[in-house]
Design a protein around this nucleic acid. Sequence first.
DNA 1: GCCTTTGTTGTACGTTCGTACAATAGGGGC
DNA 2: GCCCCTATTGTACGAACGTACAACAAAGGC
Lengths: 217, 217
Amino acid sequence: MSENKPKFRRESPELRREQLIEATLRVIARKGVSAATVREISAEAGVAFSLIRHHFKTKEDLMCAAYAYHMQKMAQLSLSSATDQTRPLADRLRQCIKDTLSPPVTNGAALQVWAGFIQMVPHDARMKQIHRDTYLGFRDTLEPLIAEALTANKTPWDPRLVEHKAIACNAVLDGLWLEGSMLPDMLPAARLIEVAETTLFAILDLPLATAPIDIPT
Amino acid sequence: MSENKPKFRRESPELRREQLIEATLRVIARKGVSAATVREISAEAGVAFSLIRHHFKTKEDLMCAAYAYHMQKMAQLSLSSATDQTRPLADRLRQCIKDTLSPPVTNGAALQVWAGFIQMVPHDARMKQIHRDTYLGFRDTLEPLIAEALTANKTPWDPRLVEHKAIACNAVLDGLWLEGSMLPDMLPAARLIEVAETTLFAILDLPLATAPIDIPT
DNA sequence: GCCTTTGTTGTACGTTCGTACAATAGGGGC
DNA sequence: GCCCCTATTGTACGAACGTACAACAAAGGC
């Protein structure tokens, strides 16, 4: 009978912090923000609840870290192929549309997490900063694509027109993401992508391929 | 010294319920859902906190009522002029755009309330029903306008095309509402309306008036 | 193999939450 | 003007919350 079974594992602060953050996001996704207590989160992570305060000064700190982590992951999943200059513009655009409007980005759980954090934004300066940075990062990634599309289309443009169209494209994607996440059985990914492609290509005056090309995942 | 000053006023259940609902919405808008406790809400309404349980069986019941109340008010503010058949189509559309993307609909506080409720939707069947009804009501109001625009434009259409365009228009408005509510100083109402008009009229193939007409509020 | 470091646990405390219930009092019906 | 109904109040209770702190133990340095 071996008695050298350790009661717990020591992990590096970085790894443990990430585990706690991901446990937080899972709890919020599954049961909502109000259920994301330190006890529930630590149970999800499989540690004692008092450990949270060793890695995060307050619970609010954990929430901020989780918000930044979640938004960064979403933005990366959405726009990872936007800057891949080896592929033609239309391909990149369609890939971004597909990535944004398919799971796991367009997803009820992800929306839950996002909505939970959004309502904290006005009451916490750090949350506000994270939110602003995320939104601007998204738009800053989108704008070069818009400019490239207008140039390819020989449409004369100035920064204001690009920003105008970036706002519009962003709004279409945000709106479809929202509705597709909330009502997945009414608006399946294929429908969302179809609407987004039609609308975005119309906004950008790009020719719309009639038959969908094969987009690698 | 008059001593006949009453300690409180008796109100009808209907009025008191509405007062409590509106107090709930004010608290959520100001301090977030987590601060919307029965004590905070009743203080906002100027009554004893135990009164809430006399008019609402549980706090969850109050939240559901407040959610339905809020969404109904938002939808009404947004689309009140959609069915006014005495005005030309383009006017009605532009009025809806303006109403949707200006305060008090596009508004940080309204977004806070909405986000707070949204994260309750997956965990409560009644909330889910309210949400579904609101969304479908919005789209059902929008679709006749789309169909009318296509007809006026002599574009042949079937229900699927109308639905497609309704989803797109809805997404544009939702997305702009979202971003305008979150970042009002970066996206003022005038900008949102400009983008929405351009995009929606493009989706519907309607001629866009170059100079903004005077839209009554 | 011991020692130091610190990641980890368990317990305890004060606060605030939603709920329950008996007592009070406003106000319309008669 | 009295009485009944019930809207309203005040107090109390158990549960769960975030936080604080001392004791324990895993794991690398020597």
